Simulated scan of single mutants.
Amino acid sequence: MRKKVMATVLTAAMVASISVVPQSVAAATDPSDLKIGLITDVGGVNDGSFNQSSWEGLEKAGEDLGVTVNYLESATDADYQPNMETFVDEDYDLIISVGYMLADATKEAAEANPDTKFAIIDDSSIDLPNVTSLMFKAEQASYLVGYVAGLTTKTNNIGFVVGMTNETMNQFGYGYCAGAIDANPDITVQQFNANSFADSATGKSMANTAITNGADIVFQAAGATGLGVIEACQEAGVYAIGVDSDQSSIAPKTVLTSAMKRVDTAVYDAVQELIDGKLEGGVETFDLAAGGVDIAPSQDLISDDVIKAVDDVKEKIISGDVVVPDNKDDFEKKYGDVYVLD
């Protein structure tokens, strides 16, 4: 990953915490002249998670800022490139890709269309001046929900279902396992890879396996696949932990908390930067200190003492007293080889 510097001020309460390229600031653009398109991953725009939160951020930008917004859903990965071509052919000013799985299609489109701006969530591999990478310290939010799980479980046995395993998604697992172990050294974390972000049946099956094997809390970082996890937990009368957005509305008596990534705000801010002439290529990373990640505000199912403990460890993460591992080597240095999915 390249390490460069960017002088960009983000709107709202979020600020990039690492490196992006230097930029020349262009003149602001009339928002009514701008068209911004969003391309979902295979989970679809109503996945209750990553894609939906991204679209909600873009919808809000359309309402607040006066830009024209639209989305195209990807039913399979074969839809990525045609969706890119549709927005390019229709002269969209900014095309936002939701998720690292769109990296190849985004890079190809950006190389072929240097005058069009692109942004991609959760991928920093594209080194082009017209591509902005929106990254999140997912391991920090996952650590917090792992800490909640470790302090809340009655069986000392919890589960984790991930949509796919790779460098980005494993950050959820590293953080979750680290937080759970730090809160409860006697904890067992059952781990499952669904190998899909759009297979709720597999998510449900994996959660049921975890529950049968003693888990009383299951965290899912799996897009629409995670909806099946929540359904299984609801039917079994155990807790689920949501991801990306506050998923408590899906099952208010089941979703204990959620590991939030404010992709909605990141998308909104990217549009604002485009309007202001400040959106340039590089990496913008959103962390706990800037409010880019956190646990959900819905905390009715969490005990007061657990909330206090989580607030305390949150401050330690922000201060640097607790450093959450975001890669295999750093995780294993402290916790051993208990994370088995990478």
Rank of each mutant, 00 (worst) to 15 (best):
D47K: 08
Q81I: 00
W55Q: 07
I39K: 00
T29A: 00
A75H: 08
D47S: 07
Y71H: 15
S17K: 06
W55A: 07
E90K: 15
N113P: 04
E111M: 11
S54Q: 02
A109P: 10
D93N: 15
I18S: 13
D41F: 06
K60N: 15
S24I: 14
E63R: 08
A110W: 03
S32R: 15
D89A: 15
N51E: 12
Q81L: 11
T116K: 05
A103I: 03
D79A: 06
D93C: 06
P82R: 03
P31K: 02
M101D: 10
S53P: 09
A103H: 06
S74N: 06
D91L: 05
T29H: 01
Y100V: 03
Y80D: 01
P22V: 13
G37R: 01
A103R: 11
E111D: 09
A61T: 12
Q23T: 13
V42P: 02
G37N: 06
L58V: 14
G43Q: 04
V98F: 00
F118Q: 14
W55H: 06
D33K: 15
G99V: 07
I36L: 08
T40I: 01
S49F: 02
Q52I: 06
V98Q: 01
D41A: 07
L58A: 09
N51Q: 12
S74M: 05
L58S: 08
F50E: 08
I96F: 04
Y92W: 12
T86G: 00
I18E: 15
L72N: 10
S54P: 01
D47Q: 08
D104V: 11
K35M: 05
A61R: 10
P114C: 01
T40S: 08
K117R: 11
E56Y: 04
N51A: 10
I95N: 02
A27C: 07
L72K: 13
M101I: 11
S24Y: 09
Q23F: 07
L102A: 07
V69R: 06
I39H: 01
A78H: 04
A28C: 13
F118S: 11
G37K: 03
P114D: 01
I18Y: 11
V25L: 09
P82T: 05
S49H: 00
E85W: 03
I96Y: 00
G43A: 10
D79N: 12
E73P: 10
D89K: 14
D104S: 14
S97D: 08
P22M: 12
Q52S: 07
D64E: 14
D93F: 04
E73L: 09
K35N: 05
N70H: 13
D104W: 03
K107N: 10
T29E: 05
L65F: 05
V69P: 02
I39E: 05
I39A: 02
L58C: 10
L38H: 06
Q23M: 14
T76Q: 02
D77C: 00
L38T: 12
D41V: 00
E90R: 15
W55P: 02
V67Q: 03
A27Y: 02
P22A: 14
G43V: 07
L58E: 08
P82W: 03
E59F: 00
S17M: 04
V67I: 11
T116Y: 04
D91C: 05
A28N: 14
K60T: 15
Y100S: 10
F87W: 09
T29F: 01
N51T: 13
P82K: 01
D104P: 00
M84Y: 09
D115I: 02
V88W: 02
V88G: 01
Y100M: 09
M101E: 12
E56A: 09
F87Q: 11
